[in-house]
């Protein structure tokens, strides 16, 4: 299972990087979103995937799940949700003001 998830993380990062390297603003935002999903998944996978133990350390339990990564990933997801909604608005406003979503044209001139 861990191998499969690691491959998934790799694919998410790969697609994300590809999207970031394109010229369209929206694609860059999408790429960042995919990469942050990949990072969150990585956080979960890195702590090891367990098969259905409760996150409690009792006396008669032989195995248990680590609750910490799940708390971390939840926080990270909430943060990336907030940031993503902000960058989407920002991208939209930039598009409205500059009338283009081509990052080449948003480079800015050298003499300003």
């Amino acid at each position: 299972m861990e191998i499969l998830m690691s491959v998934t993380v790799g694919v998410l990062f790969m697609v994300g990087v590809y999207m970031i390297l394109t010229k369209s603003i929206l694609r860059v935002v999408m790429g960042l979103m995919l990469m942050s999903h990949g990072a969150h998944l990585l956080l979960l996978v890195m702590s090891g995937l367990k098969e259905g133990g409760p996150p409690l350390l009792g006396e008669d339990l032989t195995y248990y799940s680590d609750p910490l990564p799940q708390a971390l990933i939840l926080t990270a997801i909430v943060i990336s949700f907030g940031v993503t909604s902000f960058i989407l608005v920002l991208a939209y406003r930039t598009y409205k003001v500059h009338k283009t979503d081509d990052l080449d044209k948003l480079r800015g001139t050298a003499d300003e």
């Binding site: 942050s36 990585l42 956080l43 890195m46 702590s47 971390l72 990336s80 940031v83």
Partner: peptide, 13 residues
Amino acid sequence: SIFFIVGVAYIYA
């Protein structure tokens, strides 16, 4: 920030 999370994940592992 994405790479920060990746770093946190690795160091936790």
